[in-house]
């Protein structure tokens, strides 16, 4: 599958909304977004040398994905795609930090390798949390939450427009790519000048489309702000209580995972 096709497939899967029957969906996007931000802040505050504590932090995406009915295995695989840049930065730790951390079958593992694995794990866990957030809440509900948090309306409108027209322009780009491939006789890469002409054509089509969009928006009473999705799950006192329980419950769990002496369960009594 080409990059364009896989991106379109991701967008279509999100639009279908996979997790609308889970408890976190009912508690509202604001609660999910807040819980995710708290999780990321707590998880990133774990020192790099405490790899075991970071492993405990995986409880959040594992449990939440189960509640949402999203397979954790798939999330795990998707989070692997985020690794290349993290590896590029972290790979120097084993080279420069050679102090011993532990030995494994006679082979000494350095502190650098522990911190390197911690960096990878931090990156993967954060990606998993964000992917889950979007799967559960959907992009429109997150935009609505941002608007209710007083993020400027113009910026929220940009988010919604870019998201909406991404799919449309990718369809257009796929048509252009297929036309080129049909005439390229197996030549995969575009030369820079040919790429420029293709991107330029796409730009001209985009501008024409923007003009049509603008006229259509004006015809429907556009006054500079985009109407937002109304979060039916987030209205009423029950929903407010549900949001508070969701965020406070997870915050308590994060506190336990971050500060409780969980390592001592294994450190002192099982293996010393």
């Amino acid at each position: 599958m080409s990059k364009i096709d896989s991106t379109l497939a991701t967008l279509h899967a999100l639009d279908r909304g996979e997790a609308q029957s889970c408890p976190s969906y009912a508690s509202g996007a604001a609660a999910c977004l807040l819980a995710t931000l708290v999780y990321l802040a707590v998880m990133l505050s774990v020192p790099l040398q405490q790899l075991s504590r970071l492993v405990w932090m995986a409880a959040y995406p594992i449990v939440w994905s189960s509640l949402a009915g999203v397979g954790y295995g798939r999330l795990f695989v998707q989070s692997l795609y985020a690794l290349p840049f993290i590896v590029f930065v972290g790979i120097f730790n084993p080279v420069f930090d050679t102090a011993p951390a532990f030995s494994l079958g006679g082979v000494v593992v350095s502190q650098g390798w522990v911190s390197f694995l911690s960096i990878l794990l931090r990156g993967m866990l954060s990606v998993q949390a964000v992917l889950l957030l979007l799967r559960v809440c959907g992009f429109a509900r997150i935009c609505h939450t941002l608007r209710s948090w007083h993020v400027p309306a113009v910026f929220v409108a940009q988010l919604m427009l870019v998201y909406r027209y991404l799919g449309v322009l990718l369809e257009e780009l796929r048509t252009m790519s297929r036309a080129r491939m049909a005439r390229a006789y197996g030549q995969r890469h575009l030369s820079l000048s040919l790429w420029g002409a293709m991107a330029g054509q796409l730009f001209l089509r985009s501008v024409e489309r923007a003009g049509r969009v603008h006229r259509a928006m004006l015809a429907r009473g556009f006054n500079g702000t985009m109407p937002c999705y109304v979060d039916a799950a987030g209205a009423g006192p029950d929903a407010t209580a549900g949001r508070a329980v969701w965020v406070a419950g997870w915050a308590a769990v994060f506190g336990v995972l971050r500060f409780a002496p969980l390592d001592s369960l294994f450190r002192y009594n099982i293996i010393s």
């Binding site: 322009l169 501008v207 500079g224």
Partner: peptide
């Protein structure tokens, strides 16, 4: 506003 959104895409 619409031009910015579409060109972002």
């Amino acid at each position: 506003v619409p031009l910015t959104g579409v060109l972002g895409a």
